[in-house]
């Protein structure tokens, strides 16, 4: 399809010139910055052969790291699914003082260096920190536990859900809600049957992006996690440790699994989305 599009692009006249230049630059960039490193990673891990690969990624420590990472990412995503939706709803639906400031604040987790976020969260939730003290009294330990890992992941990935849901909520026409009301539907039913199905694809995308980001989050997590092998060690840290030990094979093997997981999540999301949006197809 790309080849066909290219041929058409070269032959037909367009209003804006520069198809060849822009497309070429884009492809070069994608090849150099995205595909080449990924290919190198795959090649490196291929060197060790399937048996070695399997042994490396199913090692006890690696498995434990995968479990910690996936569990924490799942909790972080579940939290953001709810919180991000709520935040987007509030930002779109209501007018209040300071709305624009709140809107701008949503991007802080993206703008902030993740290490800074990690240090701040650790300071706040440590046993002697402002929030940590309160949780401590309730018998909850956050820093150096999987909960802390999930907290850091939730912090850094929150904007994904807010920012993907927000524009779709904004584009909802108020008349479909009014139509529902005249047809006898009350607010709960209107949300469930009219509003949510429309924002569902965007919500799903936001959650998938948040999950993928959480899988790979490094900077914010390592400060709060404590990084105890088998307990709170995340996958990306394990990759880092293997690199430090010059064990490139192990590092790339584990990295490939992480990459495949993130890729699978995004792929599954796209498939679900296509299913959910089949109504938009013309014909």
């Amino acid at each position: 399809m790309t080849a066909a599009a290219l041929r058409i692009g070269l032959r037909s006249r367009r209003v804006l010139p520069g198809f060849g230049l822009t497309m070429g630059t884009t492809l070069t960039y994608v090849a150099l910055v995205v595909l080449l490193p990924l290919a190198a990673l795959l090649l490196k891990s291929a060197e060790i052969g399937p048996d070695g690969f399997l042994r490396l990624v199913t090692g006890e420590r690696a498995l434990a790291a995968f479990q910690v990472t996936l569990t924490a990412a799942a909790f972080a995503t579940a939290f953001n699914a709810a919180y991000g939706l709520l935040m987007a709803w509030v930002l779109v639906r209501y007018e209040f003082a300071g709305k624009r400031i709140l809107d701008a604040l949503m991007d802080i987790p993206f703008a902030l260096p993740t290490a800074v976020a990690g240090v701040a969260l650790t300071a706040l939730y440590a046993a002697n920190g402002w929030f940590g003290q309160l949780f401590e009294m309730a018998g909850l330990k956050i820093v150096y536990t999987v909960t802390g890992v999930a907290l850091a992941m939730a912090f850094t990935s929150a904007p994904f859900v807010v920012r993907t849901v927000q524009p779709v909520l904004e584009s909802l026409q108020p008349d479909i809600e009014e139509a529902s009301a005249t047809l006898g539907a009350y607010p709960g039913v209107i949300f469930r049957r009219v509003i949510y199905p429309v924002i569902f694809p965007a919500h799903l995308t936001g959650c998938a992006l948040a999950f993928a980001r959480s899988l790979g989050e490094f900077g914010a997590v390592i400060f709060i996690a404590g990084n105890l092998p088998f307990k709170t060690e995340i996958v990306s840290l394990l990759v880092f440790i293997r690199l430090e030990e010059y064990d490139y094979a192990a590092a790339s093997a584990i990295a490939v699994v992480l990459l495949a997981t993130a890729f699978a999540v995004l792929l599954a999301t796209n498939a679900l989305q296509a299913l959910a949006q089949r109504h938009a197809r013309k014909g």
Binding site: Q173, D175, I176, P197, V198
Partner: peptide, 10 residues
């Protein structure tokens, strides 16, 4: 409604 306000996903 003027613009029908149909439920696009149904």
């Amino acid at each position: 409604f003027q613009h029908y306000a149909l439920f696009q996903h149904m």
